[in-house]
Amino acid sequence: MELDEKIYLYLLFILPLLVLLFLYNQYWKRKKQHEFGDLELIKKLSPEKSIFKPVLKLVVLILALIGIILGLVNPKMGTKMETVKREGIDIVFAMDVSKSMLAEDVAPNRLDKSKQIVSQIINQLGNDRIGIVAYAGSAFPVLPITTDYGVAKMFLQSMNTEMVSSRGTSLDEAISLSATYFDDKSKTSKLLILISDGEDHSEGAETAAEEANKLGIKIITIGIGTEKGSTIPLKRNGIVESFQRDNNNEVVVTKLNEESLTTIAKATKGGYINGNDTKKVVEYIKNTLNTIQKTEFESTQMADFQSQFQWFLGFAFMLLFLDVFFLERKTNWVKKLNLFNEKQ
Rank of each mutant, 00 (worst) to 15 (best):
E241H: 04
Y181Q: 11
I175L: 07
G131H: 00
T221K: 09
T161H: 06
A208Y: 00
F243K: 08
N237C: 06
Q244W: 15
G204K: 12
L234F: 03
S230Q: 10
L194R: 01
L192C: 10
T207S: 13
E199S: 10
G131W: 00
G131T: 00
M159P: 09
A134L: 08
K255D: 06
D183H: 05
G150V: 12
L194T: 01
I195P: 08
E211P: 10
A139K: 00
Y135F: 14
G150K: 12
E227I: 12
I239K: 15
N247K: 15
F243V: 10
N249G: 12
K214W: 00
T161K: 02
Q124L: 02
V251D: 11
T169I: 05
Q157H: 04
T207R: 12
K153Q: 13
P144M: 10
I220Q: 09
L171E: 04
G216L: 03
L143M: 10
S196W: 01
V142I: 15
V151N: 08
A134S: 13
N249K: 13
I224Y: 00
K235Q: 14
I195L: 14
I193D: 05
S230M: 06
K153C: 09
T207G: 11
Y135H: 03
M163C: 12
T207Q: 13
S166H: 08
T207W: 00
Y181W: 04
V133W: 03
E227V: 14
E199F: 01
L171M: 11
E206M: 11
A152V: 03
V253C: 05
K187Q: 15
R167V: 15
R245V: 15
A209L: 01
T147C: 04
G150D: 11
D128Y: 02
S196D: 01
I193G: 05
L234P: 07
V251E: 14
N123C: 03
G150L: 10
T226S: 11
D197I: 01
N248A: 15
E203Q: 14
K190Y: 08
F182Q: 01
F182R: 01
L215K: 15
T180Y: 08
L191D: 12
A139C: 05
K255I: 12
T146G: 09
L143G: 00
N123P: 12
L234S: 04
E206D: 10
E258V: 06
E259P: 03
E206T: 14
T221D: 11
V252F: 02
D148P: 02
S260W: 01
V240Y: 06
A136G: 06
S196T: 03
G168H: 02
Q124K: 14
T146F: 09
